[in-house]
Design a protein around this nucleic acid. Structure first.
Length: 513
RNA sequence: GCGCCGCUAGCUCAACUGGCAGAGCAACUGACUCUUAAUCAGUAGGUUCCAGGUUCGAUUCCUGGGCGGCGCACCA
């Protein structure tokens, strides 16, 4: 702890003691609020319009609460702004109204303190709706200075200029409570996220999907190609994995007779962190019996379009200065065709060596041990994906890349699978689910060979899942949607970490001040 | 894991080719009863991320390390 911070903390503790000595409890138990700050403003405007103000131009008496965000002291009077979830409201304190003692005690308040105030509402000379404090109550003393920015609001344009700020991303992510406390725009993202998730639920509920919960702790992970987090159960004396996908359990439920199921929950993948990846992230998966991937494409178009509109009011939004329109129908391109256009040759006619060479030429990467599937995927990721800004379904992936998807009708080298890209990011992944248990076993065995060859992300064999398939799963369409990424896009956030309240960070070493 | 950039007061940032470490805000003291980036006068506040090295002298240059951001890789 530096001397300076310790000085600031000490000053506040001294004020805390002084408050107690004066008989003021710095940590109150409750406060009866009559109106939120935004309600105070609208009620006063309404009263003003109706002519319901008294002869002094005052509205009704209110009790408001908030955190002190600014303070302007003028000797025998003072102005402050407090902020609650409704926004900010100005307070006006006067010596002749409060009396000497209550006015002097204001000196023991600091920015960041929570207070409650009772008083009549009026409009100041500069037209701001303000509560004239008849009395005030300390609700919670802040002992650590919040990095509250100073800001100026242009009265004509309403434009907000922030003069100093709390900018260090590390500290903002680590101390999200402080980030939220001083940045209304971060709170807005949180609300947008919640509205979007609610809209997803409403969309699926309205179409007869049943929301379920499946295990996070799994004896065998699967449903995606990724490395898992590993943990251990003491009583069972066994290794368990945090799920990397919900897929295999949800399809077991389709076997069990549920025709439409979905789950919104956390998946965990033991991989790097960047602007589109967090080790734990929120996935929506839904499965519909008797449907194929064409049906699911239509459903996804509707879902994305309507959820974005319900959340933001429009199907168009801007992400990082790019205009994006999620109005259906979305563009469709075939995987091999799109890649072929970039390569100048059909990848179907290229052998592994040719693909490897193409990758080397285009990206400078040498992948000596990579198989055909991985090479195709790498090339696609490097050449095609970054250009998929407007919503685009990429369809018909090579079978090597898709161990859980049905063969494409008429071409067994492909699968009936699509991924949805928006803004260059993979937003959704879906297929006509493989329901042939013998084919599924063969796919798993092919994955096992990749695993033996050193591919840590190859899909493990899940015998229980195969048993479920053997009982019989109806034809089913399934979709996974990355919820965090969708929120990142519609909130115009640069990074997935901006839409996750507490993103994964390296643990803090030691304790700071 | 690799590359680039960064780390200076509580916050936001300065400090020329190496030459006494500064400003604004926040804090503290005082003045001020309609202010709003309040204003005015004053005070205090620093292991310049860490450890070495070069140098008469390092915030500055070099080496190593730590932390972070961005990009790459990874993420079917």
């Amino acid at each position: 702890m530096t001397q300076e911070l310790s000085h600031l903390l000490r000053t506040r503790r001294e004020k805390l003691e002084a408050l107690r000595e004066r008989g003021i409890e710095p940590y109150a138990y409750r406060f009866d609020r009559t109106a939120r700050s935004d309600e105070v403003v609208s009620a006063y405007s309404e009263a003003e319009r109706k002519g319901d103000l008294n002869e002094s131009g005052e509205g009704s008496e209110v009790r408001v609460v908030g955190r002190i965000m600014s303070w302007r002291s003028h000797g025998k009077s003072a102005f402050a702004h407090i902020e609650d979830e409704g926004g900010r409201i100005q307070l006006y304190f006067r010596l002749d109204v409060l009396g000497q003692e209550a006015f002097d005690d204001l000196n023991l308040l600091d920015l960041g303190d929570w207070i409650g105030v009772e008083g009549r509402v009026f409009r100041t000379r500069t037209e701001e709706i303000t509560v004239r404090a008849g009395s005030w109550t300390l609700l919670s003393k802040s002992l650590r200075p919040l990095p509250i920015p100073k800001e100026e609001v242009d009265p004509d344009t309403g434009e907000r200029t922030v003069y100093s700020g709390f900018a260090d991303p590390r500290t903002r992510y680590r101390q999200r409570y402080a980030d939220l406390a001083v940045h209304p725009e971060v709170r807005k993202i949180v609300r947008t996220r919640t509205r979007l998730v609610s809209a997803l639920r409403r969309f699926l509920d309205a179409r007869g999907f049943l929301e379920v919960e499946t295990p996070v702790l799994q004896p065998i992970y699967g449903g995606a190609a990724a490395r898992p987090f590993t943990t251990y159960h003491n009583a069972l004396d066994t290794t368990l994995y945090l799920r990397i996908a919900d897929e295999l359990y949800l399809k077991r439920l389709i076997v069990g007779g549920f025709e439409r199921v979905y789950e919104i929950g956390k998946d965990f993948r033991n991989e790097g962190i960047d602007r589109s990846h967090n080790p734990e992230f929120t996935m929506l998966e839904f499965y519909q019996a008797f449907a194929d991937y064409h049906d699911m494409m239509e459903l996804v178009e509707e879902l994305v379009g309507s959820v974005v509109e319900e959340t933001t009011g429009s199907r168009r939004f801007v992400h990082q200065e790019r205009d994006i329109d999620v109005s259906p129908p979305f563009r469709k391109v075939a995987f091999l065709e799109a890649l072929g256009k970039k390569l100048g040759t059909s990848p179907a006619e290229m052998d592994v060596e040719g693909l490897r060479q193409a990758l080397r030429e285009r990206t400078g990467e040498d992948l000596d041990d990579a198989g055909r599937g991985r090479l195709l995927d790498k090339l696609f990721g490097a050449l095609v994906e970054p250009e998929l800004i407007q919503p685009t379904f990429v369809v018909d992936y090579p079978v090597e890349l898709s161990p859980l998807a049905k063969h494409k009708r008429g071409d067994s080298s492909l699968t009936e699978r699509f991924e949805l890209f928006i803004g260059g990011w993979e937003l959704a992944n879906a297929f006509s689910e493989l329901n042939d248990p013998l084919d599924q076993r063969a796919r798993f065995e092919a994955q096992a060979q990749l695993r033996d060859a050193g591919d840590e992300e190859a899909h493990p064999i899940d015998e229980d899942y195969l048993r479920a398939m053997e009982y019989g799963m109806p034809p089913t369409g399934g979709v996974g949607i990355g919820v965090d990424r969708l929120v990142t896009l519609v909130t115009d956030s640069p990074s997935i970490r901006d839409v996750i309240l507490f993103p994964t960070l390296r643990p803090e070493e030691g304790r700071e001040g």
